[in-house]
Amino acid sequence: MEAVKAHMTIDCNEVSQKDLNKIIADSAKQGIKEVLIKNPQAKHNLGVGITDPIHIVYEGDVGYYACSLSDHISAVVHGTAGWAIGENLMNGEIVVEGNAASSTAASMRGGTVVVKGSSGARTGIGLKGGTLIVGGNVGYMTGFMMQKGRMIICGNAGKALGDSMYAGTIYVAGDIAELGNGAEIVELPAEEYEEIRSTMEGYGMKAPASFKKIVCNGMLHNFNKKEFGVWKTVL
């Protein structure tokens, strides 16, 4: 029986998107530890539906849905990421060295996604678990309808931050353009700051000196509450 290699390299110039995903999935199944994706060229759907442990290194930009609908994976993007990187990630770890576009880690359910640069609109939308760290700024509607998990934003946040969130926690170091409906700022306990600091340190990131902690105020949890102004804007 042929010995299983620990590493392998795939060149996106040489394989189709369909084959690439199959090769990664099969490699992970066979126990290959690491796969290097050369020339990703910001193509879409690179590394989708991978459910066995593997470390994926993207040597450049990735397009939409990289590392999405996956479990147990770890990945590094040496470049920027397109829409919805890590979408519905079950567990694992994704690090983007550059910026990410919109919908980063949408509906993520577990694991950690780290964007060292900034991230666009709808970052962490519908978050259902896990930790999302953004080194820079985040755009409009970040954390919309967030359900669980936590989001750590080192830069500024756009409008409608945490709008309609059900639960979970958002930490923002910079300015908040506008808090969303049903979100409110509460005091940050020292031990939570310490936890953020050490989590970030693990990714070679220095935590800003302070964070604002944003949680759900429960105002939208009961339709029979007569918050007319709020209902008018949210329902």
Binding site: Y65, A106, R122, M145
Partner: peptide
Amino acid sequence: GVDQRSPCRHPDW
């Protein structure tokens, strides 16, 4: 026990 309301459009497209 929360009154749940789902979004009207997909989060990622």
